[in-house]
Write a protein that binds this DNA or RNA. Structure first.
Lengths: 339, 339
DNA sequence: CTGTTAGCGCGTTCAA
DNA sequence: TTGAACGCGCTAACAG
């Protein structure tokens, strides 16, 4: 409510003097006046008008956080602890750096560009953006951008990304399955929310087969639909004897847990009848019985690193390397049976 | 980047004319010029500068979403699907109304007031704010406020709140436990994140006892600490024979699932050795084995209704009633044993 | 040490 | 139908 002008009137000094006090330019204001203005400032709870700041400085201290998702999927995307952990970590780090967080969940790149300009954003974090759209965004927005879990199909730009050893994740879990005697496995990605990462993970699965002189066919990749009842049909089908698979390899603990519970309710014993593996190592993997063998990743660290990298970029510091790949490790629990 | 002034220069017309085109005042601009300006507008991807708008209109179309939480708890608050469901629903509804969402997770009311003023917010949604702080916030902020799951200890203001039949929830679950023969129960709230609601729920538990001419003592209320290992000690202690309890009544599925899994890993059979109930009926309750008997609530609806109510308030419409109480129902599953 | 002023982008009012 | 001028809150450059 109270503006610099009002404060200056109440204190009987000029706006500049008030601004000097606010900005801590103690050398330019006599101590007596400083005290007096300070008191009024606090009494009136003076707060700068960010609109005026935006106009003046042509920036806003706003960090845009964009979750790129299919429109229909909006409701559930945040329910995966993976997203929430990233989000929580980012909010905290943004705030502690004195910035503000604007959250936008969508898959409309035009809108993202518009948003960043309208609000004079200082930087953006983009999660799960398809490669073709990364290119568009990178050439339309001229403030620092950091991506999380994105894959780029051009080298026209320097992309800053916080990623994961996805391929290694697929490799490790498959290698483990092979060592337990599973040669008939099927990979179930959460298509199409995370296309790049899922492809990498599947490539990792193939690597493990190749290492043993075997081949994992492309037919062993069954994307899961958004509709829950359709997914459940797929679980039943793939777990059934006719399909001939001995292990279901999921790309998230969320769906792995869902499948595990659903199959148990429909007469399957895990892992005796069918083995299941997850990906993420979040709370779901520890809650189900048997606990999931899964691939560990630290998702809140992704959010933290993304903001830290963004802050460095905003301050004009060099960031090396531009692409960070966080490590994974295999977390063996009880959902895989030795054949 | 491009301003009205630039566009007007490129089109060879005045800024006013461009503004008229943008604002759709077709009567004031000749069709030929309208076409021409429109084309340039689109080519340049003109976007209004929100800073200038804020200065001009003294508002910003920003809705502040404040999650009131203990500082240390920040990392985990979003991991409970309850928070994420609310958040996701709000983001979607805010956006579809043409507003912007600023997310702030903290428990510093001064900062909230400052934030709302600095950004000329059009309204705020506040989640889990203690009653004493609601009073401070309501008298310091003069834009519409909608609370979620808050309890107020004064009637100086009209508070708008989206709440839940918390007391009924406690009552229903306890009545069920009593009907199953459980008279030695203990209530475990997630102190202190949600003080008001947990008290209500505990009162509901007492109601059910009173109805049977019995008394539930205040000692049967054990708040859970934030530290996980400390919680686990409490689980073991309360589930042990010495404590004499036959059922653990949790105030969230999150902790109920944690306890259920932990106790199972340490030799307890659920529900044979000890019964467990949850609250929320979210995905956790369906994932654990046995599945949790719990109290159902629709948390994404809370977010949706909060924003819808806020929008009505912003548009100056009357909102009746000011406090909405969403219904609960008992969801009986397999975590309670008949004694 | 303190006061005055220009200008950031926008929409509106008034004059041409 | 169009243009010029104003003011929203703020800061920095300049004047006193």
């Amino acid at each position: 409510m109270s503006t610099i002008k009002e404060i200056s009137r109440k204190a009987g000094v000029s706006p500049t003097t008030v601004a000097n006090v606010v900005y801590g330019r103690t050398t330019k204001v006599s101590p007596a006046i400083r005290e007096k203005v300070q008191a009024i400032l606090e009494a009136e709870k003076y707060t700068p008008n960010m609109g005026a700041m935006m106009l003046l400085r042509n920036n806003s201290k706003i960090i845009g956080v964009i979750m790129f998702t299919e429109p229909r999927h909006n409701e559930t995307v945040l329910e995966d602890p993976f997203s929430s952990a990233i989000l929580g970590a980012m909010e905290r780090e943004i705030r502690s750096n004195g910035y503000y967080m604007m959250l936008y969940i969508s898959s409309d790149e035009e809108e993202v560009v518009r948003l960043s300009k309208a609000w004079k954003m200082d930087g953006l974090v983009l999660v799960w953006v398809p490669g073709t759209i990364c290119r568009i965004i990178n050439s339309s927005i001229d403030v620092p951008l950091v991506y999380i879990d994105c894959f780029f199909n051009d080298e026209d730009h320097v992309y800053h990304n916080i990623g994961l050893e996805d391929r290694k994740g697929g490799y490790e879990v498959t290698k483990h399955l092979l060592s337990m005697g599973h040669t008939n496995i099927v990979f179930l990605p959460c298509n199409p929310i995370f296309p790049g990462g899922d492809s990498e993970r599947f490539s990792g699965c193939k690597d493990a087969f190749a290492e043993q002189g075997m081949v994992l066919s492309d037919t062993a990749r069954v994307p899961l639909p958004y509709d829950r009842t359709k997914r459940e049909k797929i679980y039943m089908q793939l777990a059934g004897k006719d399909a001939g698979y001995t292990a279901l390899v999921f790309s998230s603990d969320y769906y792995a847990s869902e499948a595990l519970t659903y199959l148990q309710e429909h007469g399957f014993r895990i892992p005796q009848d069918i083995s299941i593996t997850g990906f993420d190592d979040n709370i779901f993997s520890r809650l189900v019985t048997p606990r999931l063998t899964t691939v560990h990743q630290d998702s809140s660290k992704k959010g933290l690193l993304a903001i830290q990298m963004l802050m460095r970029l905003i301050q004009g510091q060099d960031v090396e390397p531009a692409r960070v790949t966080l490590p994974i490790y295999l977390q063996i629990r009880d959902s895989v049976r030795k054949l």
